[in-house]
Simulated scan of single mutants.
Amino acid sequence: MHVTRWAQRQMMTFHRRIFVQQIYVVQTSDPDVLITLPDIVPTSCCNCFRRLSNVNQICMKRKRGVDHEEKTKEDTSALTSTATSGQKPKCYTYWLMKSEPDSRIEKGVDVKFGIDDLKACEDQTACWDGVRNYQARNFMRDDMKVGQKMFFYHSNTKIPGIAAVCEIVKESYPDHTQFDPKDIHYDASAKKESPRLFMVDVKFERMLKRFIPLTELKQLFLKHKDSGGPLSNLALFTRARLSVQPLTKEEWDFILSLEDKEPDSSG
């Protein structure tokens, strides 16, 4: 049997053998891959392994070509977990959430949902469904709490920007769209007993006194990046692909203050 396949099988066995105290490392033909496995290696294969004395120093190296979903999971772990780093994660209580105000047909369905659509909903409240990015999903599932505020951001439109303030009124629960084969967000691998996608409910609170466009926010971001201002690490530009983005209180307060200022005097 090829040693790499054998090693992978042994590693699965390792996770079920809590008495193991030693670990070996397999050096495969791929220089980017190391496979760790337990001290249950047959004598005949010992020339394939190198013993390491300190188990705590052993780690699994990934191949460089990690797909976006896996990389997103790794990035999320760095933000929300203290298991490996021992550092206290940031606790976010403000959010910016993107939605498309203009009609766009995807798989025969119009994905349009702007602030006017939210206002037209019963009690001006709606579920925020269809979030497929795992980091965005984790923010909704793990960090969003009832009473927290969010900016309603119009994306994928002629003039993108922040239109309104909303409130989180229901914490995370399974996103129903993942179970519907007719829905564009259907996920065949999702099961009701182990859902993959989650959503929250949001309620319209008020429109901003003026629309704050992306171009204005970008100018401020570039200015603050050089000067160390409150928007120097704004996720809208540092994690632009996320549809659900965390904001610090300093970022929230600064952006909210812009509605009372003229665009050219807001820096």
Rank of each mutant, 00 (worst) to 15 (best):
R5C: 08
A7M: 03
Q8D: 02
R9M: 01
T13K: 11
F19R: 11
Q21W: 01
Q21T: 15
T28W: 04
V33E: 14
V33I: 15
L34C: 11
L34S: 12
I40V: 08
T43Y: 04
C45H: 14
N47V: 05
F49R: 04
N56Q: 13
C59S: 15
R62A: 11
K63I: 10
G65Y: 10
D67W: 07
H68G: 03
E69L: 11
E70M: 13
K71M: 13
K71Q: 12
K71D: 06
D75Q: 14
S77F: 07
T82S: 15
P89G: 04
K90P: 07
C91G: 01
T93M: 05
P101E: 03
S103V: 08
R104W: 06
V109R: 12
K112V: 04
F113C: 08
K119Y: 09
D123M: 11
D123P: 00
Q135N: 13
A136Y: 08
R137P: 00
N138C: 09
D142C: 09
K145V: 06
K145P: 05
V146T: 14
F152G: 06
Y153H: 03
S155L: 03
T157K: 02
K158P: 07
P160Q: 11
I168W: 06
V169N: 05
K170H: 07
K170C: 03
P174C: 02
P174A: 02
F179M: 05
D183A: 12
H185V: 05
A188E: 15
S189R: 12
S189Q: 13
A190K: 12
A190H: 09
E193K: 15
S194M: 09
L197T: 04
L197N: 08
V200K: 02
L208F: 09
I212V: 14
L217D: 01
L217E: 04
K218L: 05
L220C: 13
L222N: 15
L222T: 11
H224D: 15
G229M: 01
L231S: 10
L231V: 11
L234D: 04
R239W: 10
A240C: 02
R241C: 08
Q245D: 00
L247V: 02
K249D: 13
W252P: 02
G267C: 06
G267A: 10
G267M: 07
